[in-house]
Design a protein around this nucleic acid. Structure first.
Lengths: 282, 282
DNA sequence: TCTCCTAATTGATACATATCAAGGTAAATG
DNA sequence: CATTTACCTTGATATGTATCAATTAGGAGA
C-alpha cells in the first residue's frame, strides 16, 4: 500500500487546476514509481533551472525560452510532462479549455469536423509549438496526437497569470500565432488552388522540412536523401489536403513512378531530391 | 503659389518614415486645402484626444481602443488618414514593410498569387482590423482595397516602438491575430471540404454578418431582409472560394432559384432569411 | 439617351477527382 | 504460426467543376 502523505494536497491542487483524471492517474503513477514527493523533482540547489526542465529539449525554445529562471521555477511547479500514444485526443472541439501545452516530441493534428462527418485538418504542429487557444473559454478545434507525442502541460490559469506578468512571453506567443497564421494562409493557397498531385507534393515537402529540422538541415548540407516516417495515415493526409484516401494513394504512386519519392514501408518515405519535389508543389 | 514653410520639415520626415509618394501628395493636398500646418491638427487644449482621432469611428475599437490619451497623441503625430479607391494595392507581396494601418471604412482583400497566375484570396478584413504583418521585414501577401477604403496609416517604427512600451497594445494585437487565425482555419474547412454551392452560401453569410455589423444587428432584431452590396467582383469571390467565375455565377443563380437570395443589381444582394442561408453553408 | 466596354451569365464539353468495389499487405492478436 | 484486422492500393464508373465559347446585362462616358 502506497501512502500519499503530503502528496495528497498536491494532487488535490491538480484537480483544482483543471487536470483531468487520466493526468492525475499519471501523476500518481509517477509518485508511486519514484517514491518521493512531486516537489522534490525541483532541485534549486543544483542550478536555477528546475530539474524537470533541465533535460528538456525545448527548454530554450518555444515559450520557455522567454522565461526567467524564477518564472520557469514557478511554472514548472504546475507543469507535467505527459506522453500520449498516437490517436489520443488532446483537445476536444467545443469543450471548455482547462490547460495548454508545449509539444516536446511528435506531431499534433488540429482538425474540425462538420455535422455530417466531413473532416478537415486545419493545422499540424511540431515541437516546440504551443497548443491551445489562448484567452478563450472553449476550444474551437480538435487536437489529436498524430504520432506518439510528449507534451509539457500546464493549467490555463498558470499560463494566463504568467502572461500578465511577463510581456516578453506575450510577445513570444504573438510571434508564434503570427507564424501559424502565415502557415494557415499558405495552406489556403494549397487547398484552394492546387491539383491533387501538387497538394500531395506540398504535404510531403511540409513534412520533410518540419518533421525533424535538426536532422533535415544536416541531410540538406550533405545533399543526400531525406528519409522520414509520415506522421499521418492516408486518411489524415486526405483530410489535410481536402481529398479522398484513394486520390492521395494514386498521387503517391504517381510521385513514385516519377521518381520524386520512394516508399519502402507504408509510412516510410525517401526523397532523393528535395528541390525537384518542391518544383512539383506548383 | 503655396508656401510650405515649417511644413517642409514635416513632409521630409514623412519621407524618412517610409511614406510613399502618393501619401505625401495627399498630405500636401491636405495642407493646401486646410491652409495650416499639420501639427495644428492636434488640439490638446480642447481635450486630451487628438483632433484627428476625435471624429474617428474606430477610435475606441481596434488597436486605438487600448491606447492612453498620451499614446494616442504620440501616435497620431505619425498617422495619416488616407482614402483609396477600390482596386488600389495597399501592400505588395514580397516588398519590404514600411507601414501598418487600421481600416476605418471598407473591405480589404488579402491574396497570394502563384507564379503561373493562380490566385487565392487568403483573407478579408473589415473595420477596425489592423493590416500588415507585424515583426517581419517583408510582406508575404498582397493587400488590395476591395471596396473604396479609408485607412489610418502609421509607420512601422512608430507602431513597433509603441508595442514595446505598451503591453496592452501587444495583447490587443495578439487577440486580433488569434481571431484571424480562427477565421483562417474556419475558411480552410470551407475550401477543403465544401461543395461549390456551400462555398458560395458561406461567402454570402460571411459578408452578411461582417460587412456592416451595426446595420446588421438592427436588421436582425427586426427579422427583416438583409441587404448589402458585395464588396468583391465574381472573379474575386471565385479566388476566395477556390472556384472559377463561371461556377460562382452558376451557384448564384441556383441560390436565386432556391429563393435563398435575391440579386437586383449585379452586386446588390438581398437575403430574406439568414438562417436558411446558414443551413445551406453545410 | 446612346454607345461602348467590362462584368456576368449561360451553354456545351472535357477532365479531375469522388465514389463504389475488390484485392492486397503488413502489423496485431490469439 | 495462423488468423484477423486495419490500412493501403488499384480498378471501373459517376459526378462536380473547369474549360472553352457565346451571349447578355449594366454602368461609364460621350
Amino acid at each position: 500500500m502506497y501512502q500519499l502523505g503530503d502528496n495528497q494536497n498536491t494532487l488535490a491542487n491538480l484537480l483544482i487546476m483543471g487536470y483531468d483524471k487520466a493526468q492525475i492517474i499519471f501523476c500518481l503513477y509517477y509518485l508511486i514509481t519514484q517514491g518521493k514527493p512531486v516537489e522534490e523533482r525541483l532541485d534549486i540547489h543544483n542550478s536555477n533551472i528546475p530539474k524537470l526542465c533541465r533535460s528538456c529539449e525545448v527548454r530554450h525554445k518555444g515559450i520557455c525560452g522567454t522565461l526567467t529562471a524564477t518564472e520557469l521555477l514557478e511554472i514548472s511547479k504546475h507543469t507535467r510532462q505527459i506522453t500520449h500514444e498516437a490517436g489520443v485526443e488532446l483537445i476536444s472541439d467545443g469543450e471548455p479549455i482547462t490547460s495548454y501545452a508545449t509539444i516536446m516530441h511528435g506531431v499534433v493534428k488540429l482538425s474540425k469536423i462538420l455535422e455530417d462527418g466531413r473532416q478537415q485538418v486545419v493545422g499540424l504542429q511540431f515541437s516546440p509549438d504551443f497548443i491551445g487557444r489562448l484567452f478563450s473559454q472553449t476550444n474551437n478545434y480538435r487536437a489529436e496526437a498524430a504520432s506518439d507525442v510528449q507534451i509539457c502541460q500546464m493549467p490555463k490559469k498558470a499560463i494566463e497569470n504568467l502572461i500578465k506578468a511577463n510581456p516578453e512571453l506575450e510577445h513570444s506567443l504573438l510571434e508564434q500565432t503570427l507564424k501559424e497564421l502565415d502557415e494557415a494562409r499558405e495552406w489556403m493557397v494549397t487547398l484552394g488552388r492546387k491539383s491533387a498531385l501538387e497538394k500531395v507534393a506540398c504535404f510531403l515537402y511540409l513534412i520533410a522540412t518540419h518533421f525533424d529540422p535538426a536532422y533535415f538541415s544536416e541531410q540538406e548540407k550533405k545533399q543526400v536523401n531525406i528519409i522520414f516516417d509520415l506522421p499521418l495515415t492516408r486518411a489524415d493526409i486526405a483530410d489535410f489536403l481536402g481529398l479522398t484516401v484513394e486520390t492521395v494513394s494514386r498521387q503517391f504512386t504517381k510521385l513514385r513512378t516519377e521518381k520524386l519519392i520512394e516508399i519502402t514501408a507504408r509510412r516510410h518515405v525517401l526523397i532523393p531530391n528535395l528541390d525537384k519535389l518542391k518544383q512539383a508543389c506548383g
